[in-house]
């Protein structure tokens, strides 16, 4: 095996951290936006949803290229020195996860908004209580949204390569490592890394779902 087991775990742990941070960052903005879009009492918001759903198909390499140009020393934020760092990867992956989280959250909240509003307002609750109730009632679709966002972040390779540079011990993640090992013809290592990636995604999704389904 070309990649020692210890390094595989190191890469997996890094992937988990970067995708986790990206999901967190995307959720920080995506959840409130999704709840707001889904909970609005009047119809409309159609164009916002169209934009979100279309953005789910954002090509990762284009997002990566955008951040490359933004963070490059010749770019507007060049002074930050962030290109080829995990921070740059987190930002790009967060942009990719954001529409998933906002879109799926909005859809889930929207499906429940009318009923919850009628119930809460009917019992004399405030509009603020409508929102907090909606948030809890939509926990399952929200968990699904987080899982989808995490999945898109951890399984992505185009933006990760362009913004991270696949630097060993720094920005090498499971996907870029799979590309490298395949390029080197080390198919056993590539396969092993791929299996770890699958297992990790499955594990995180399972944890999220179990957490979301608990009473």
């Amino acid at each position: 095996m070309d990649v020692p087991l210890g390094e595989i775990w190191e890469i997996a742990w890094r992937s988990l951290r970067i995708a986790g941070a990206a999901t967190f960052l995307a959720a920080l903005f995506g959840l409130p936006l999704g709840v707001w879009l889904g909970a609005r009492p009047r119809r409309g918001g159609g164009s916002a949803r169209v934009v979100l759903y279309a953005a789910m198909g954002l090509p990762p390499v284009v997002v990566g290229l955008f951040f490359y140009l933004l963070l490059s020393r010749s770019g507007p934020l060049g002074k930050s020195g962030l290109l080829f760092t995990q921070t740059a990867m987190v930002m790009a992956e967060a942009v990719l996860a954001f529409p998933m989280i906002a879109g799926f959250t909005a859809a889930g909240v929207r499906a429940r908004a009318a009923n919850v509003r009628r119930l809460v307002r009917g019992l004399g609750g405030s509009e603020k209580q409508v929102l907090t109730t909606l948030l809890w009632e939509s926990r399952r679709p929200i968990v699904a949204a987080l899982a989808a966002g995490f999945g898109s972040a951890i399984s992505e390779v185009g933006a990760a390569t362009i913004t991270g540079g696949d630097i060993r011990h720094h920005t090498r993640v499971l996907t870029t490592a799979v590309v490298l090992e395949t390029r080197k013809g080390e198919l056993r290592s590539a396969l092993m890394l791929g299996l770890v990636l699958l297992g990790l995604t499955l594990l995180v999704t399972a944890v999220l779902v179990v957490w979301g389904e608990r009473e």
Binding site: R73, S74, F84, I167, R168, L180
Partner: peptide, 20 residues
């Protein structure tokens, strides 16, 4: 030393922008 392994053309392009 953080190594970014790309083709020669891309390596020179990255370097030309001051990113390595």
């Amino acid at each position: 030393v953080e190594v970014i392994a790309v083709g020669t053309g891309q390596a020179l392009a990255i370097a030309g922008r001051g990113d390595v």
